[in-house]
Amino acid sequence: MSTVMKLAHLETKMFFRDRLSVFWTFLFPVAMIWLFGSMFSGSITGPFSFAELFIPSWIGVNIVTTSFFTLGTVLAGYRETGVLRRYQSTPLQPWKILAAHTVQGTVIFFISAVLLMVFGMMMYDLELPLYIGSTLLALVISILAFFPFALFVTSLAKNTQAAAAISSLFLNLMLFLSGATFPLELMPTVLQYVSKVLPLYYVIQLLRGTWNEAPITEYGFEVGILIGISAVSIFLASRFFRWDDR
């Protein structure tokens, strides 16, 4: 097994050894959907049902939580406690560390996405995405945009607390302003513009769209934006990789 896969495998195992992160990653989103469902599921008007709108959105939100908390904050912790420094005088190259954590994050994210989807199917008659290949591709593009983005942003933090604070800020901002939880149409015009600056907005457009309406080829603009974010973030994350918090 290559070093990347070995490290990814170990990191995934260790993730499951931490009960608290298992709860926040897998059960919290399901609980939120259940909560929103009990509030809104009967009152949504328009062509799409509650589940068709909210479950793809929360799968998008899960990309954000995975990238900022499962990856970013954890690596900031590794930086602070010297885990990364231990790698520094070995032949292990930084890109392999980033790649291993990306693989681990992808596995964990897909488990959480499947859980949400199954929950939606059982509770709210959600159906499989209309263009399933497109949805999968959209997920991959979103991951490639968000993981390096979060890895870069959290690497700027001085310590784990600061990384967690940055992560919470980004998460909350996107949670409320990207259309994931509240319909953008109900927001003031200014905030509607703000939402378009947030990368999660494009992820949600892409996921909702391919799930309910059209194949990914119809979403060239969103795909373009996300690929752009991805390219810049991959460059920044590997260029400014830091082994320790000095």
């Binding site: 170990l10 990191e11 260790m14 050894r17 931490d18 590794y78 406690t81 010297g82 885990v83 420094r85 231990r86 520094q88 005088s89």
Partner: peptide
């Protein structure tokens, strides 16, 4: 070379 750093850790749950 091999290096044992001062006060470093490996992953706690490893």
């Amino acid at each position: 070379i091999g290096v044992q750093f001062q006060a470093t850790s490996i992953q706690k749950k490893m």
